[in-house]
Amino acid sequence: MLVDFNFRVILEYLPLFLTGLRSTFFIAIVSIALALITGIIACSCRISGIKFIKYPAIAYIEIVRSTPLLVQIYFLYFGLPTLGLKIPEIQTGILALMLNSGAYMAEIIRAGINSVDEGQIEAGISSGLNYVQRMRLIILPQALGVTIPPLLGQNIVLVKDSALLSLISVMELTRCGQTMTSERFMPTEAFLTVAFFYMCIYFCLKALADWSQRKLIFREAY
């Protein structure tokens, strides 16, 4: 069992794990930023009254939400080359994470906007504000507080999802564990170390999400 847990091997492979960790960080940060932009655009299309852009946005969100991320990753990984697009695996992975998380973020933002009371909007209309002013001055400031905690939660999911990129041979944290397993055949050491690093990221992000929940949700109650 854990009696012959070999710390020396872990120490030997630590530089590899640290590069993996850095790569996971890089993938996560880039995809979170891109997913947020995608989410905002998709959400604005989703709530707009123009059918021409509303229905494609609905289709995008529903398709992403009802298929597994792994299938989406493989779709891009095996599909893009047949279209003549040859991009590195890491970019394919970031693209997949961006499209996947973007759809979930669009739904989170939409839920935030919908949570603003109907009366607020009516009050805005009767004060003579137009649509953009209502959005900017009344709806978005109130929606922001409700939106940020679940968005941070989605970021936790995204970091964990980035582990799936190891299956298209992107050199990130999980891939490092696989490499160590295939070189030394020490899966216990390899995967428990990987799990440990993910737990560290998880606890940091969780603390951030809980803090924002306390700060933002209660302020809204006043």
């Binding site: 980035s162 799936l164 299956l167 564990g177 696989q178 899966p187 990987v194 799990a195 993910y198």
Partner: peptide, 23 residues
């Protein structure tokens, strides 16, 4: 719960599939 929510599902599968036989 913290262990499960803090690690990716792939890693959990690898732990179950590779580590349990070692034990």
């Amino acid at each position: 719960v913290a262990f499960v929510r803090g690690t990716p599902f792939v890693v959990q599968i690898f732990i179950v599939f590779f580590i349990l036989p070692e034990w």
